[in-house]
Each structure stands twice: as structure tokens, then as C-alpha cells.
Amino acid sequence: MALRSRAQSFAGGTLARGMARVNARHPWSHNDHFHPWILRNLPDRRRAALDIGCGEGALVASLAPHFTTVVGNDVDPGMLAATRARCSALPNVTVTGEAWAGLPGPFDLVTMVAVLHHLDVPAALTHVASSLAPGGRFLAVGIAPPRSARDHAWDAASILTNPVIGFVKHPRADRSGPRPTPYPVVEPTLALDDLRRHVEDVMPGARVRHRLAFRHTVAWTRPA
């Protein structure tokens, strides 16, 4: 991720260290930031939802009031335990570590937040498409390395707006210092233009868009 690497080395790293201090004092979750986008784009029919790579279960809990049943799925035992604890009072939520591609559907909503780059993308998209009910919706938030000029422009905008969003979301300074992420971290390798081609092959008409916060979104509704 060339632009971020250059920013880290600029002026001997002084700028990067300063930005890191600001971000640590005003922390915010780049992934949770997109949960409202998902909630604004729910399908009309809301019987069953599946969140793949549910992490600590924040999105699962947010989806529960809107669907008859919600399934949270993750491969990490710690994340499964956190989701079960968060959703223990939600009787319509099931949390499972089983292979998500084999879960019984169909689903009216399938979500992934910072998950798709961990997977075999063509196979994952194909499984998602087949698991959706007619009219069901796939909503994903993803990460991709910048390759094109447009990618780098969005990266630059994300670098500049990151502390601003932090101030808005977390105005009171947190002086406890940087905290390690609880999630497994895998660097993405598939550029957004390449991802878009995979998506179009499996999900014709899907909307793949750049977003701030070093993210992109994918939205597709299975034809009725």
C-alpha cells in the first residue's frame, strides 16, 4: 500500500508517528463505521440473515431486531465466545463455527465485513449467490490494496479524513495508548478492479464502490 508506506517514511516518520498518536487518542472502528450503511440497505423480506466472520458480534446484535433469525458465523473460538456473550439475551440469534458455505439457507441477507479478502473470492461469491433467496441481498465491506490512480486518491482522502472522523466519533482523548486489534489480520492482495471483475462475473449488476476509511462496499440483490 504504497501511499501509506510513503506517508510512514515521510520526514523520517515524524508525520506518521504524529498521526498514529492522534488516532490512538481518538480511536474508532473502521469496520463498525459501516454497520449503519448495512442497516440502511436491508432487503424488504427479512426472515433469515447470515453474518460471515461475525467477530465480536456487534453487527449480529444490530441485525437481530430486523430479522426473524440471525446466524453469526466465525472460525475463531474467541470471536465466537464474544458473540455468544453479546447475543446471549437474543433468542433469535444462533452463533456457529461450522463451515458457512454448508449452513442451511436460503438467507434474505448475507453480510461480510473485512472478511472477503481472507477467502477464495470466486468460490466465496458463488456460495453467497447460491445461498441467497430470490430478492435476497449481499452486503460486504472490504479492504483492497491500492493499485490504480483512483485507488491512491481514495487512500489519500482516507489518510486525511481518518483523524477528523476520530475526533467526531471519539472527541474525548483516550490516553491509554494504542490497543492491538482482537481480530485476525491478513493483508489484502486483490486490487479493487480485480475484485470488481470477480463480482461482476458472479453477481451481475452489483455495486462496488470506493469508500473512505480505506474500505470499499459491495451490494447485490439476487434477482427474484
Results as ranks from 00 to 15, higher is better:
101 A>Y: 08
22 V>C: 05
131 S>T: 10
183 Y>C: 07
130 S>F: 07
174 D>M: 02
130 S>P: 11
186 V>I: 13
136 G>K: 02
149 A>L: 14
136 G>W: 11
5 S>T: 00
155 D>V: 10
104 P>L: 00
46 R>A: 06
215 R>S: 10
88 S>R: 13
158 S>R: 04
126 T>R: 14
16 A>C: 01
51 D>Q: 02
116 L>D: 10
152 H>M: 11
40 R>Y: 08
178 P>G: 03
187 E>R: 13
211 R>Q: 12
190 L>W: 14
203 M>F: 10
74 D>Y: 09
53 G>W: 08
222 R>V: 02
75 V>L: 14
88 S>A: 15
99 A>H: 13
189 T>D: 09
120 D>L: 00
41 N>T: 13
32 D>E: 11
160 L>E: 02
22 V>T: 08
28 W>R: 04
6 R>D: 03
127 H>F: 03
89 A>Y: 15
68 T>I: 08
103 L>H: 04
211 R>L: 08
31 N>R: 12
168 V>W: 15
84 R>E: 08
216 H>K: 07
185 V>S: 09
180 P>Q: 06
16 A>V: 00
4 R>S: 11
214 F>C: 13
173 A>I: 02
175 R>Q: 15
207 R>W: 12
164 V>E: 00
6 R>N: 00
41 N>K: 01
186 V>G: 04
209 R>H: 04
97 G>M: 09
59 L>P: 10
156 A>N: 02
9 S>K: 09
163 P>Y: 08
141 V>W: 03
